[in-house]
Simulated assay, not measured.
Amino acid sequence: MIGAVLRAGLDRFERRWNYDAGYMRRILAADRRAGLKLALATGFMNHDFGLPAEVAFAARLRSTRAADCGPCLRLGLAMAAAAGVPAALLRPALQDGAPPPDDRSDIALAIGYTDAVLAGSADAPGFAAEAAARFGPRGQAGLAVAVLAGQTFPLLKRGMGEAASCAPVLRELAAMEDADA
């Protein structure tokens, strides 16, 4: 019965987001208990910890881009749009390089935090302290989970033999920006 409930949930997820969750189905088919645990972990990784949506999505998308999974990046952008986050706010998270040093925005902090955590940089503790000061301990935990979430599914997909680069998605976004200019 649990397997049927999880498969139905995957059906809804795939329809809603136009996303191929085949790797999740393969995990569920191989080990039903593992599929249930993956579903529970997904709920944890989607928890916002009270962070503003644009901050959580900036960190998650920056992390997803670093993991280089186009379908996951597309999914994250669709989820951000559904949460009402304007795409323009997330552009810096998808671009190469860090925000300018004089940018003190919450988005810039999320990007710098993500980059430092992913690089294992000596700057990571400073970013963590700044995140805690700005968003509180709960928000700092939210940023940490957003970075984790951005890496988890791309790496899981790659491990299951289903990797796809972000490059096509980034080219599409650049073309849209050029058309808007």
Rank of each mutant, 00 (worst) to 15 (best):
residue 1 M to W: 13
residue 4 A to W: 14
residue 4 A to T: 14
residue 8 A to F: 11
residue 8 A to Y: 11
residue 10 L to A: 02
residue 10 L to Y: 06
residue 12 R to A: 13
residue 14 E to V: 01
residue 14 E to G: 01
residue 14 E to L: 02
residue 14 E to Q: 09
residue 16 R to V: 06
residue 16 R to M: 06
residue 16 R to F: 10
residue 17 W to D: 01
residue 18 N to R: 15
residue 19 Y to P: 03
residue 20 D to A: 06
residue 22 G to N: 02
residue 22 G to D: 03
residue 22 G to F: 01
residue 23 Y to G: 00
residue 26 R to H: 08
residue 27 I to V: 15
residue 29 A to L: 04
residue 30 A to S: 13
residue 30 A to E: 08
residue 30 A to D: 09
residue 30 A to R: 09
residue 30 A to F: 04
residue 31 D to E: 10
residue 31 D to C: 09
residue 34 A to H: 13
residue 35 G to Y: 00
residue 37 K to F: 13
residue 38 L to K: 07
residue 38 L to C: 07
residue 39 A to D: 12
residue 40 L to H: 11
residue 42 T to W: 11
residue 43 G to Y: 14
residue 47 H to S: 06
residue 47 H to M: 06
residue 48 D to W: 11
residue 49 F to W: 15
residue 49 F to C: 10
residue 49 F to A: 10
residue 50 G to W: 08
residue 50 G to T: 11
residue 51 L to S: 12
residue 52 P to Y: 12
residue 53 A to Q: 10
residue 57 F to C: 00
residue 58 A to C: 05
residue 58 A to R: 00
residue 58 A to T: 03
residue 58 A to H: 03
residue 61 L to P: 10
residue 63 S to T: 03
residue 63 S to M: 04
residue 67 A to G: 01
residue 68 D to Q: 03
residue 69 C to I: 00
residue 70 G to W: 00
residue 73 L to R: 01
residue 73 L to K: 00
residue 76 G to A: 08
residue 76 G to S: 09
residue 76 G to D: 02
residue 77 L to G: 05
residue 77 L to Y: 04
residue 78 A to D: 11
residue 79 M to S: 08
residue 82 A to E: 12
residue 83 A to M: 08
residue 83 A to V: 10
residue 85 V to K: 02
residue 89 L to G: 07
residue 91 R to Q: 14
residue 92 P to R: 10
residue 96 D to N: 13
residue 96 D to V: 06
residue 96 D to Q: 14
residue 96 D to M: 06
residue 99 P to S: 13
residue 102 D to I: 04
residue 102 D to N: 12
residue 107 I to T: 14
residue 111 I to E: 05
residue 111 I to T: 12
residue 113 Y to A: 06
residue 114 T to G: 08
residue 114 T to P: 03
residue 116 A to Q: 07
residue 117 V to L: 15
residue 117 V to T: 12
residue 118 L to Y: 12
residue 118 L to G: 01
residue 120 G to S: 06
residue 121 S to C: 05
residue 122 A to L: 09
residue 123 D to C: 05
residue 123 D to F: 00
residue 124 A to G: 02
residue 129 A to C: 09
residue 132 A to T: 08
residue 132 A to V: 06
residue 133 A to T: 10
residue 135 F to N: 02
residue 136 G to A: 04
residue 138 R to G: 03
residue 139 G to S: 01
residue 140 Q to A: 12
residue 140 Q to D: 08
residue 141 A to W: 11
residue 142 G to Y: 08
residue 142 G to Q: 09
residue 143 L to Y: 15
residue 144 A to C: 13
residue 145 V to N: 13
residue 145 V to Y: 12
residue 147 V to K: 06
residue 148 L to G: 00
residue 148 L to K: 03
residue 148 L to C: 08
residue 149 A to F: 06
residue 149 A to H: 13
residue 152 T to C: 01
residue 153 F to R: 00
residue 154 P to K: 02
residue 155 L to M: 14
residue 157 K to V: 00
residue 157 K to I: 00
residue 160 M to F: 02
residue 162 E to F: 04
residue 163 A to F: 05
residue 169 V to T: 12
residue 170 L to M: 08
residue 172 E to Q: 14
residue 174 A to Y: 07
residue 175 A to D: 11
residue 176 M to P: 02
residue 177 E to T: 12
residue 178 D to I: 10
residue 179 A to K: 14
residue 179 A to F: 15
residue 179 A to W: 15
residue 179 A to S: 13
residue 180 D to S: 10
residue 180 D to E: 13
